[in-house]
Amino acid sequence: MNIKKLGKLALPYLVWMLVLVGIPLLMIFILSFMNTDGVSFAGATWTTAAWEKMFTLADTTNLQILGYTFLTAFVATVICFLIGYPMAYIVARSPFSNKFVILILTIIPMWSNSLLRNVALKNILSESNILDSLLSRIGLSFSIVFANQDQATFISIVIGLVLTFLPFMILPIYTVIEKIDESLLEASMDLGANRVRTFAKVTFPLSMKGVTTGIIMVFLPCFSGFAIQKLLSSGTVYVLGSLIEVNYIHDINFVSMLSIVILVLIFGSMMIVNKVDKEGATLV
């Protein structure tokens, strides 16, 4: 087919993207370099104040928040991968005829209301919890002891994030593993690779696409969300999302800057993952 014709077909989509994505993004970018009164350009002036507020060494509070957000999101993503990959693999390679149902059964508990689930989790992780009060009736006790409050908060947040976003890691990985042609695994064994080597040299490289998708889909909400973090830390911990939540009414410029930072970091991590993926695909 003629490329010019195809180009014309893409035009409505381009207009759509420009109006709904391109222009708003540009607005946010411009706002982050201004001093405005809400979302209004009346009496606005150019300034880099918002950026200085974030990236200044005089007061590193905001940078620390950025670091903490990244760390929790990163650890949660890694744990999601470590739990999600084996789960997806085992289900995809199981002999059941309706594997998808099995998969749904394993992740349905994670689809119960996230707020309730995290409230329950907070309760269980606290010193006097529901399990303890139940078990105490038969003379047992249950409580998780943390070294200090900071550690307790960090672990709680990571567990909360993992429980909430694990399905988003499992599903894409399951989909790619399920699609891998059985004859490729047979070919690998035929060529002298035992099961472990077949996994390392064939299954895993071929499932990298699902892994990439899973990582993006888990990392992205972990990095930009704030509700789970706020709930599980009883509001003691600030992440980038909470900075936006707190500031969006009175400091739209600062908030714009924050969303640009989040965007850049997410695009950056996507690019890194993509690069790793490509190398994984060719260097095995």
């Binding site: 004859s183 035929d190 035992n194 064939v202």
Partner: peptide
């Protein structure tokens, strides 16, 4: 198991590794 037999196979659909 197949990986310990002195045998190699040419599969019907070739089964070449796409990666």
């Amino acid at each position: 198991p197949p990986y310990e037999r002195p045998i190699n196979t040419v599969f019907q659909r070739y089964a070449l590794f796409p990666h």
